[in-house]
């Protein structure tokens, strides 16, 4: 599975593009990094790829995943996972039910689904927390739960929106390794936006810096 962006740019209606056109190929297991200061439209880029672009924004260029054009698909049909800075677990569901929400429909039967969720919780070091209120988890636990929820949906690609910036330094390295390992073992392409150079250095893949003039062609 490969994610290809060709000259992708997003512009508000009757406005200049938010960032220079981005051309990028992300191969399976790679994590491509787009660097830039806040406010430059990095999150909007991810919204465009995931299919959440707000009304009034126009997208140019092409986005292909596995040689399939993403643009005409609604968000839920793209199978592109999205990870946020805060974990954004659903506050009304327990930790386990959050994962069950993500778990693909292909896993059938109550027992099988429960087992799949429990296994994912165990992989994230969250065994026994099925019934917990997500608000009571620590920051690291929440991020791991969110990653597991995303992976259970069997995405074909992953988008990471400053996923580690709210965690403290020690936890950040742990979670980075945890996330990148999972991406590599799944063999899916990932696209990360961040303003932290350390994220880019650690990521196994190409880095684009939106503030560098050589990328502004």
């Amino acid at each position: 599975m490969t994610l290809e962006l060709h000259a992708v740019a997003v512009a508000p209606k009757a406005g200049a593009p938010l960032f220079p056109p981005i051309t990028l190929t992300v191969r399976p297991g790679e994590v491509a990094t787009v660097m830039g200061p806040s406010g430059i439209g990095k999150s909007t880029l991810l919204d465009a790829v995931a299919g959440h672009l707000a009304h009034g924004f126009a997208l140019t260029g092409s986005m292909r995943l596995d040689d399939q054009d993403l643009a005409p698909l609604p968000a839920e049909a793209r199978r592109v996972g999205l990870m946020f800075q805060d974990a954004v677990l659903f506050p009304h569901l327990s930790v386990g039910d959050n994962l069950a929400f993500g778990l693909a429909r292909t896993v059938r039967g109550r027992a099988a689904r429960r087992a799949a969720v429990e296994a994912a919780l165990a992989r994230a070091g969250l065994s026994g927390l099925y019934d917990r209120d997500p608000a009571t988890l620590s920051g690291g636990q929440r991020s791991r739960a969110a990653l597991m929820r995303t992976l259970l949906a069997e995405p074909r690609a992953l988008l990471l929106d400053e996923p580690f910036s709210k965690l403290d330094a020690a936890l950040r390295d742990d979670l980075r390794t945890f996330t990148f390992d999972h991406i590599q073992s799944r063999g899916i392409p990932a696209l990360m936006v961040t303003h932290d150079p350390a994220d880019g250095n650690a990521a196994p893949g190409p880095v684009i810096d939106l503030t560098q003039p050589e990328n502004r062609s």
Partner: peptide, 16 residues
């Protein structure tokens, strides 16, 4: 309502 909740659900495959 935090729009990211809805986006997260959409990216997990949930339709409207």
């Amino acid at each position: 309502l935090d729009p990211r909740l809805v986006r997260a659900a959409g990216s997990l495959g949930a339709g409207p």
